[in-house]
Design a protein around this nucleic acid. Structure first.
Length: 135
DNA sequence: GCCAACGTTGGC
DNA sequence: GCCAACGTTGGC
């Protein structure tokens, strides 16, 4: 199983909505690298749900329930989306500041490429953040 | 609100 | 196909 991190601005779509809707299509990604990452996701893969701009913290864990398919919000048909299901919240949100403060996260996609909306997370980083988040 | 990073567009 | 100009994202 692989691990990922997906970003959303809580103004547009936040963790409370993800929990309320349970399964939610992750649409609107219009970045080649992010799309490539989504295409690489397998059913059952897990991802951190990160709030960008407001909070700047990882707030929950979601699971991929449907692999990449054409994004219905995209008229050109070029982009893909996946379906995500809320798994559980972090007891303690893990902030970007906390991640940046730990040099072991220096090579994480979230730190290296702040603008990338869908990025990979290594097994080690996944475990560390789960520990920090109390799950 | 500013600015750095980076992706995209369009002229050549 | 290159590269300058421009737009967008997201941290601060």
């Amino acid at each position: 199983m692989a691990f990922w991190l997906v970003k959303s601005e809580p103004d547009a779509f936040g963790w409370p909505e993800q929990v309320k809707n349970k399964v939610e299509p992750w649409t609107g990604v219009r970045n080649a690298l992010a799309a490539k990452n989504m295409s690489a996701m397998a059913k059952g893969d897990r991802a951190f749900f990160y709030h960008s701009n407001i909070g700047k913290e990882i707030v929950g864990i979601v699971e991929v329930v449907r692999t990449a398919y054409p994004d219905p919000s995209d008229e050109t048909g070029r982009w893909v989306c996946v379906d995500m299901k809320a798994v559980k919240p972090l007891k303690q949100p893990v902030t970007l500041a906390a991640i940046k403060a730990d040099p072991r996260f220096a090579d994480m996609a979230l730190v290296r490429q702040s603008r990338l909306s869908v990025g990979p997370v290594s097994d080690e980083h996944w475990k560390m953040i789960c520990d920090m988040g109390g799950v």
